[in-house]
Amino acid sequence: MTEFRPEIRHEAFEILGAARRGLWLVTCDHATNRVPEWLGGTLGITSEDMARHIAYDVGARGLSVALGEALDSPVVCSDFSRLVIDPNRGEDDPTLVMKLYDGTIIPANRHVGPTQVEERLQRLYRPYHAALAQMAGGRAILAIHSFTPALKGRPPRPWHIGVLHSPEDERLSRAVITELQAVPDWCVGDNEPYSGHLPGDAIDRHALKPGRHNTLIEVRNDLIGSVVEQQDWARRLAPALTAALGAVAG
């Protein structure tokens, strides 16, 4: 993997491979755990909590970058913590700004009001979505996420990878599941570890409503913690994704 150096950087997002001509737009909604300085650079939780899945999708950014290279396709990554505001939620979703997540209270969000939420929407959420809309064109949307091996007090999650999809358009995801189930040693979840559709989420907004092919990939984050692991997963995922898109798009 070449050096991670975005060509287009904004407070809310970064774009890599903007000129690539591949068939995909790779997106990473929860790429970083950055808290902007205008919010004080902290949400009042520990550095250990900010390194957890509650603040961002561990390993997803590196996997997205590697997949963008493998698929010769552009990549758009968010550059703010999901705890600041979650770009994979609709603007009217009650979990847009989380006050409690997997056992951790978020002090900076406990008393957040409409004015503060609107500022986060204007400066972060909406510019990120504008970048996705600008880059999407006629491409299929490949949303990359990661999931924690277990939530606090819950049983371990056995899946290595999950493919999430909406009943509104399962075509590409079904084809991806078929391809991934043929990969040796992978436990593949179908809409696991959770359902793949929320009204107003990023796939709904940029793929389902405009009618683009789409799939959302979740990889267990203990499997993609290093650059080597991210490259290996991208190397094995890329042929399966290419075959699946070819099967549904012709």
Rank of each mutant, 00 (worst) to 15 (best):
E14P: 15
P184S: 11
A238I: 08
N221T: 14
L39P: 03
L96F: 07
T32I: 14
R52D: 06
A202Y: 01
T178M: 03
Q181K: 15
R110L: 14
E69K: 04
L245E: 02
K99H: 05
A240I: 14
L16M: 05
P149D: 01
S73H: 00
V163G: 15
P6I: 07
E69Q: 04
E91M: 07
I217W: 01
L25Y: 00
A131K: 07
V76I: 14
L23G: 14
F80C: 13
L25T: 10
A136F: 05
R235K: 15
I144Y: 05
A12R: 07
L237D: 02
L100C: 12
D190Q: 12
V248N: 08
T178E: 04
L172T: 05
V117D: 00
L43D: 06
N191K: 14
T242E: 10
R235H: 01
M1K: 07
R171I: 02
L172I: 02
I161Q: 04
L237S: 08
G250H: 05
E14T: 15
L43C: 15
L16P: 04
D29L: 09
A133Y: 00
I106M: 05
T46N: 06
E168N: 11
D92W: 03
A55F: 02
A12T: 13
A70V: 10
P127F: 00
P149T: 09
E168H: 15
S64C: 13
D169P: 09
L43K: 12
R171P: 04
M98S: 11
T32Q: 09
R236L: 11
S47E: 09
D204G: 15
V65L: 09
R174T: 03
R212K: 07
V219D: 06
H145C: 12
K209W: 09
E170P: 05
L67N: 05
G200L: 07
G103Y: 00
H129G: 04
W38H: 09
V228F: 01
G137F: 03
Q181L: 11
R110H: 07
D29I: 11
A175F: 04
T2C: 13
R139C: 05
P193A: 12
S166Q: 10
Q231N: 02
V58I: 14
S64D: 04
A243V: 14
I224P: 02
S173Y: 02
Q230D: 12
R20Y: 01
G22H: 01
H160N: 13
W186K: 10
V26W: 00
F80L: 11
A66K: 08
A249G: 03
V58M: 09
M135Q: 11
G189I: 01
A247V: 04
Q231A: 06
V35K: 00
A238T: 07
I177Q: 08
P87D: 01
H30S: 11
I141H: 02
T115E: 10
L67P: 05
R139V: 14
A108F: 03
T95E: 08
N214D: 15
